[in-house]
């Protein structure tokens, strides 16, 4: 039982990070019908932004809430700028072209970010400083062997707070209303006097900032960061967005948590049903194919008819 609870905590912990990244995918897809392949790399850029902020400001590893807050907010701002630059200079010029063009563009941007990082700083993993001190501290015991570490608690709390904040922005503010209008119909929104370019730009900024938060938070638990860390995580987060219903914000959160939990349970209990832990990375893709077969609109998404 304690093992089960422990695996649930582990799974939801990974899932919270997927959820933060999936939000960016789902928001961008909702507005532009674009799979932003570079989003996983923005997550990586966020983690490295945090790393270099800590390096240049001179925060050493060691428990410090201040350092964590500064690094987190700084990384989110930098990633938001990166997201806006990508949108402005790569996606906006090709927005009028076919879907395939934008998709190839997205892949090009993703590869460019990864390879620039590899060429400039090398593929060697870096160690992100531990600002919680949880890595040398015993975890909090719940019952039996089940325990939760400080980093895991912080990941849960910060991601929940960010998700609630996003929900508030999207549903309670004027900007959020504009975002929803643009995602509903870009041209009508433009006719209603909404500055759609600004709204799209803002959407990229918010999505990128959330991904960066995911990058910094995950680095508090897994200090290993490298330029290619965004590829697989980004893909799984995308699957999470599809599972929840792409374009649907609560769906992305639900999808992220489910994918995280599913992966961890495959590691934990897969061998009982004949799936070795070696298949962990295949789980997300298998789920994707199943969702597409059974319910292409995702768990919470509504079926949208293709417009003529």
């Amino acid at each position: 039982m304690d093992t089960f609870v422990q695996q649930l905590i582990n799974g939801l912990n990974v899932g919270a990070i997927y959820a933060l990244i999936a939000l960016g995918y789902t928001m961008v897809y909702g507005i532009l019908r674009l799979i932003n392949f570079a989003h996983g790399d923005v997550y990586m850029v966020g983690a490295f932004a945090g790393f270099y902020i800590a390096l240049y400001v001179g925060f050493a590893a060691g428990p410090s809430w201040m350092a964590l807050a500064v690094v987190l907010v700084g990384a989110m701002i930098i990633a938001a700028l990166v997201g806006m630059v990508i949108e402005r200079f790569a996606y906006r010029p090709v927005r009028k072209y076919s879907r395939m063009t934008t998709l190839i563009m997205a892949i090009g941007v993703s590869l460019l970010i990864e390879n620039l990082f590899v060429a400039q700083i090398g593929a060697t993993p870096r160690a992100f400083p531990d600002f919680l001190g949880s890595q040398s501290q015993a975890p909090y015991r719940l019952f039996g062997n089940a325990a939760i570490s400080k980093a895991q608690i912080v990941i849960f709390l910060v991601s929940i707070a960010l998700m609630l904040l996003l929900q508030w922005v999207v549903f309670k503010t004027k900007v959020g209303t504009a975002m929803r209008a643009v995602s509903f119909n870009l041209n009508s929104a433009k006719l209603m006097g909404i500055n759609t370019d600004a709204i799209i730009s803002l959407t990229f900024a918010i999505g990128s900032a959330l991904a960066a938060a995911g990058g910094v938070l995950t680095a508090q638990y897994n200090p290993n960061i490298d330029p290619l860390m965004g590829i697989l995580t980004g893909l799984k987060a995308f699957v999470a967005a599809v599972l929840g219903g792409i374009g649907n914000i609560p769906g992305a959160v639900l999808g992220g948590l489910l994918i995280g939990a599913a992966e961890t349970f495959v590691v934990g209990y897969g061998q009982h049903i004949g799936i070795a832990s070696t298949y962990r990375d295949a789980v997300a893709f298998a789920i994707l194919i199943l969702v597409l077969l059974l319910r292409p609109s995702g768990l919470l998404g509504s079926t949208v008819q293709e417009k003529v």
Partner: peptide, 21 residues
């Protein structure tokens, strides 16, 4: 068969996932 019933960009991600599997 499953992915080509859907919009083209799903195919991109499914083929990627399939190659990985």
């Amino acid at each position: 068969i499953p992915s080509l019933r859907l919009r083209g960009d799903y195919l991109a991600i499914v083929t990627l996932g399939f190659a990985e599997i």
